[in-house]
């Protein structure tokens, strides 16, 4: 959407291998990325995908094993690091700010590091912490701390904002507040790079997303492009009574309206362009083959489905499932047993 302008972040062939004695972890393996001015770019991926590693390399906090990084037209370690840091704002995935200081003291401290920046009181208001401005950090809730971290990132009025999982572990209300902050930053024409493993978050907030898995980008584009690439705008998930599932996917893929099919842990996932045609035919087939249907749900396709179709796994196989409960795609059960 913002073509022509030179990229704010550009990295190519990025690799990072952690060498800790005997075991080597290839956290990032050949990652190319361009983020344009004014864009909100999302790095999306499961735990351990290499998001934090990538972001910290872009932030100049980690040295890549190989590959090149350019941020705002500069390279890290080329003598202009402090000038570069004047223009970027950062939240780390985990930081415990000074417990004994108050909100206003922390924000003022960070403000003092920047030559130009915003008024701390204004930033505190922008993250809705004005009632807590005199409260000590140790007394804040998780969501309030996260907003304080964002305030520290914003107080230097950065061109480029890095947010590493700013909403992980927060309740829906706090997440929405963080989204609002990011949107206001966007509205001022600034650039944001955000990592998340919430699919709905990426879908709502990001202009473009890169889906990362095992240190590589496996899909890149606007959320709607990625979903469109599935072929169908809808997803049908179903499960049948017998565990031995001899169902050959090829035998349902030929049903008109079904674009693709894949197996899941406890059932099947179909992407479908015309559910009103496909579902009756599917039920007929299952009936013919003597399967009883245990579950059938249909919903709009989401980035989650993109991930599943690319990897055969759910992005949060090891955690909660907030990605699929966002209001955007509240599934409605069509049939249950």
């Amino acid at each position: 959407m913002l073509n022509g302008s030179s990229p704010i972040i550009k990295c190519s062939g990025l690799c990072k291998t952690y060498d800790t004695g005997r075991n080597r972890v290839e956290a990032v393996r050949g990652l190319d990325l361009e983020v344009h001015s004014g864009e909100c770019f999302g790095l999306l991926g499961p735990n351990g995908a290499g998001k934090t590693t990538t972001v910290e390399i872009l932030e100049g906090l980690l040295a890549p094993t190989s590959g090149s990084v350019e941020v705002l037209g500069m390279r890290w370690g080329a003598g202009g690091d402090r000038a570069l840091r004047q223009q970027i704002g950062i939240t780390l995935q985990e930081t415990r700010l000074n417990d004994k200081l108050t909100v206003v003291e922390v924000v003022t401290l960070f403000r003092s590091f920047y030559r130009r920046g915003l008024d701390p009181a204004g930033v505190i208001e922008a993250v809705s912490l004005q009632e807590k401005r005199k409260a000590r950090v140790e007394k804040l809730s998780g969501g309030q701390r996260q907003r304080l971290a964002v305030a520290c990132a914003l107080v230097g009025d950065p061109q480029l904002l890095f947010l590493d999982e700013p909403t992980t572990g927060l309740d829906p209300q706090s997440r929405r507040e963080i989204w609002a902050i990011v949107r206001r930053h966007q509205a001022r024409g600034r650039t944001t790079l955000i990592t998340t493993h919430y699919m709905d978050e990426a879908e709502r907030l990001c202009d473009r997303v890169a889906v990362v898995d095992h240190g590589k980008i496996i899909a890149l584009g606007t959320p709607s492009e990625l979903i469109a690439r599935l072929g169908g705008g809808h997803v049908v998930e179903f499960a049948v009574n017998r565990q031995d599932l001899p169902l050959e996917l090829g035998r349902v893929s030929d049903i008109p309206g079904i674009e693709s099919a894949c197996r899941q842990r406890d059932g099947f996932l179909l992407t479908v362009s015309a559910p009103h045609l496909a579902i009756p035919r599917l039920l007929e087939r299952l009936n013919e083959w003597n399967y009883e249907l245990n579950r059938l749900t249909t919903r709009h396709a989401s980035l989650e489905d993109v991930f599943v179709s690319l990897t055969g796994r759910h992005i949060e196989d090891d955690g909660g499932d907030s990605a699929s409960v966002g209001p955007g795609h509240a599934g409605h059960a069509v049939a249950t047993e």
């Binding site: 932030e59 906090l61 840091r85 950062i90 780390l92 930081t95 700010l97 920047y114 520290c152």
Partner: peptide, 14 residues
């Protein structure tokens, strides 16, 4: 340990 130092050097602090 709290990664506060890391956060500080991520800013332009001297």
């Amino acid at each position: 340990v709290r990664k506060l130092l890391k956060r500080l050097v991520a800013s332009p602090m001297r």
